[in-house]
Write a protein that binds this DNA or RNA. Structure first.
Lengths: 346, 346
DNA sequence: GTGAAAGCGCTAACAG
DNA sequence: CTGTTAGCGCTTTCAC
């Protein structure tokens, strides 16, 4: 491990001078040629500052605490983590990850994170929902990913569920479907209501009257399968918008049983939560991927900007469905995000 | 942030004494009643040591670098991370996660991790394979998860693929199946070969002669579907062992097309990589879950023990299919793991 | 412009 | 047994 001291000795200046130079704060304070010598030596011995020592003085660490509640049981978390991780790396930050399924241990974990001097928290939810950020976390900058903070005071990013529903349905309409079914979730979670609204709007905008016989909100297993079958019998659909891959599965099964083929006899657009369809049968165009990676990426960017600009102004509450600004995530993806940002009142 | 200094002042002793006491190294060095006073004060003001300051002296941080290559594109990583995270938390460690899909940035990321003073690396692969640990990482304790390090000098944990194949097939035999098909992967990855071996052994042990007409190693999409159909026509199976959920999917489709029901007309045991079957149609007993969480958990435990016991003895190479020792992972799961451990030669 | 000195919170060597 | 001293690597006054 190379230190400033070594540079100082090699160049015959003091540690303080080295500090100024390597931190780029030598303008008009250190003679240019000395600065040059120092920089040269630093490069030569491959000097890298020790972030721990630095943070002991400055009490900021360039470490972000990635807190995910309820996430262990889902395969989605990975994408959010990866997005956050990529953004953080680009901005010179590190991620410390902590999950808190065990209710009781939360406080302990958060305390530990604080002791490690994290500069802020990225609070990720397992599925899009109204989120209550634990008060302990609020003491530092926080951003919510895959959820919307209840009070509107914390920047959040979540999938644009309405947009997903609208867009999916639109695609089915454009594909020539006349009787488009909605296969949703029986639980009244955010995504369910909003995607359904999007579905309805798209139908309305196309001058199609929604038929309640074409809607099946189901759970799991045989019961769900039966409900889908019943809906198909009653509604005779030719296109399907499916809430997630479990629901798509029921339609594929129903099709197979009738000797029909998805993509020829029936059209289907589904959200591919588990990525299983992407690698199996469904042609790419019929799946919508939730923007987990992108949410992680944006959340980390936003968090860093808050940390560095001390951007904590009291705030308005705005929503936008525009493409993510300055995101530039490296993965091409169908991005449907909804940003809840605090706007400073200027 | 509470400090030792505060405790020292409040109790009228020196910081060094406080240090000894709060670190539990006061046996026969500090008078019991002083120690008691110090401890009381520490508890009263809720003292928690500052790990950063500590590591500045000791140069170990109780931070583990979680490095996952090629992991961003799969939903599996989450489980490994969560397992590692849980184990680490229990042992008083933190996880810093880093993914390195971008080939070029690896070195930079690893260097950053080192600068943050990680005590060791957890190197996670995206699917079970022979792993080459980047040399930079080898300078610190390393454990490989979801892969087997090529030289056998690095402790590794991977799914017991053979056991998975054997067990799955055994279950089908016990369920009364006579003609058991194997639907595998056309790519010659580790899991493919080993699960197939397990399948063959189970058949052999039951006195069933393997029929090549019952084997289909396939890729994706319609081609795969067709191959599975052809195999079914040719082999007339009544039971299926499927390599993963994509492959199970083809069988479910084939069944539906024939008006058959899995679990009644056909038996199926499949590996449920994406967890989609677990929540959809398949009864629990027919799916095998890869032990991602458990691998992460074990790997972290092992790594910490190496870090703390400086367990770096040159080593034998042993394999075991026994249940994980001292694992006690909180999740109930069908655990099939293969441990590659270095054994000290004593 | 530059360096000496102090200090972040903690541990470790050594006196007493 | 306990306190003093020194120092981990860095930043930050504050004299010179």
């Amino acid at each position: 491990m190379t230190t400033m001291k070594e540079i100082a000795q090699a160049t015959g200046v003091s540690v303080s001078t080295v500090s100024l130079v390597v931190n780029g704060r030598d303008q008009g304070r250190v003679k240019p040629d000395i600065a040059k010598r120092v920089r040269a030596e630093a490069k030569k011995i491959g000097y890298r500052p020790n972030p721990l020592a630095r943070s002991l003085r400055t009490s900021h660490t360039r470490i972000i605490g990635f807190v995910s509640e309820e996430v262990a049981t889902t395969p989605y978390a990975g994408g959010i983590i990866m997005g956050a991780q990529d953004a953080a790396a680009r901005l010179g930050y590190m991620l410390i990850t902590v999950s808190t399924d065990g209710v009781a241990e939360e406080e302990r974990e958060f305390a530990a994170l604080k002791r490690y001097g994290v500069d802020g928290f990225l609070y990720a939810k397992m599925y899009n929902q109204l989120a209550d950020v634990p008060p302990v976390l609020r003491q530092l900058p926080v951003v919510v990913a895959n959820g919307i903070e209840r009070t509107g005071m914390v920047p959040s990013i979540a999938p644009d569920e309405y947009g997903i529903g609208y867009n999916a349905t639109k695609r089915l309409i454009n594909a020539g479907c006349q009787r488009i079914a909605y296969i949703g979730d029986q639980d009244p979670i955010l995504a369910q209501g909003l995607r359904f609204k999007g579905y309805q709007s798209a139908l309305g905008d196309a001058g199609i009257t929604a038929d309640p016989k074409l809607v099946a909100n189901v759970g799991f297993n045989q019961e769900a399968m039966d409900a889908v079958e019943a809906m198909i019998e009653a509604g005779n659909p030719d296109g399907f918008f499916c809430f997630n891959d479990s629901r798509s599965w029921y339609v594929y099964q129903a099709a197979a049983r009738r000797g029909l083929t998805i993509g020829r006899d029936w059209s289907l657009v589904g959200v591919d939560n588990h990525r299983v369809f992407a690698e199996t049968l469904a042609p790419r165009l019929t799946t919508i991927e939730l923007p987990h990676y992108e949410m992680g990426y944006w959340a980390a960017c936003k968090l860093v900007s808050m940390i560095e600009h001390k951007d904590e102004s009291p705030a308005l509450h705005t929503q936008t469905r525009a493409p993510l600004p300055s995101l530039q995530a490296p993965r091409p993806a169908l991005i449907h995000c909804q940003l809840i940002e605090k706007d400073s009142v200027r």
